[in-house]
Amino acid sequence: MTKKRIALEKLAPVGADAQKQLRWTGIALAASALWSLRALFRVIGEMKTLKAILDQGASGFVAPYPKYLGSAFYGFALVSLVLAGVAAWNYASFRQGARTDYLMRRLPDRWEYHRRCLTVPLLGIGASLLIALALWVLYRAVYWHLFREATAGVEDPARLIIRGGQVTWRGLW
C-alpha cells in the first residue's frame, strides 16, 4: 500500500495529489460513459420501432449508425480537453510561489519533470480514447444485432438504412 502511494506521488507535481487527479479523471470518464448511453438508448428505441413497423407489414427505415451518435461522445472529448489543461496547469504549478521549474529542468533525470506533469493527463486521455472506442464498437454491435433481429426475414435489409438522410421511418408514414 505504501509502495503504491509513493509511486503515485512521483506521477504528479511535488505537493499535488496524484490520487485525487486520477480519481477525478475516473469520475469524469464514468460520467462521459453514462452520457454516451444516450446513443445506445436511441439505437434501441429506433430498432424497437423499426421491428414493430416491419412486424405490421409496413415499410420502415433507419438511419446509419453514426447518425445516432449525436453528442454522445462529446463527454470524452471534453475530458480530454480538460486533461490537456491539467497538463498545462501541472507545468504552471512549478512556477507558483517559486521557480521550481529551474530545479526540475536541471535534474539529472531528464524525464522527471515531464513525468510529473504529463503522466496523469496522458493516462486519462488514453483511457478516454480507449473507452470511447470500446463503447463506439459496443453500440455499433448492438445496432447491428438489433437491426438484424428487426429485419429478420426481410429481403436485402440493407436497403432499409437511409444513407446520408436525416433518418427515419417517421416521414414515411
Binding site: V14, Q96, A98, T100, Y102, L103, R106, L107, P108
Partner: peptide, 28 residues
Amino acid sequence: RKNIERFSFATCEHSFFPTLTPDGHRDF
C-alpha cells in the same frame, strides 16, 4: 544531463518546492 549534477543553483527567485517541508526536500 551527464554532468549537470556538478552544478547547483541558488536563486533569489527560489527554486525550492513551496508546499514541501525541508525533510521533503531532503528526500527529493
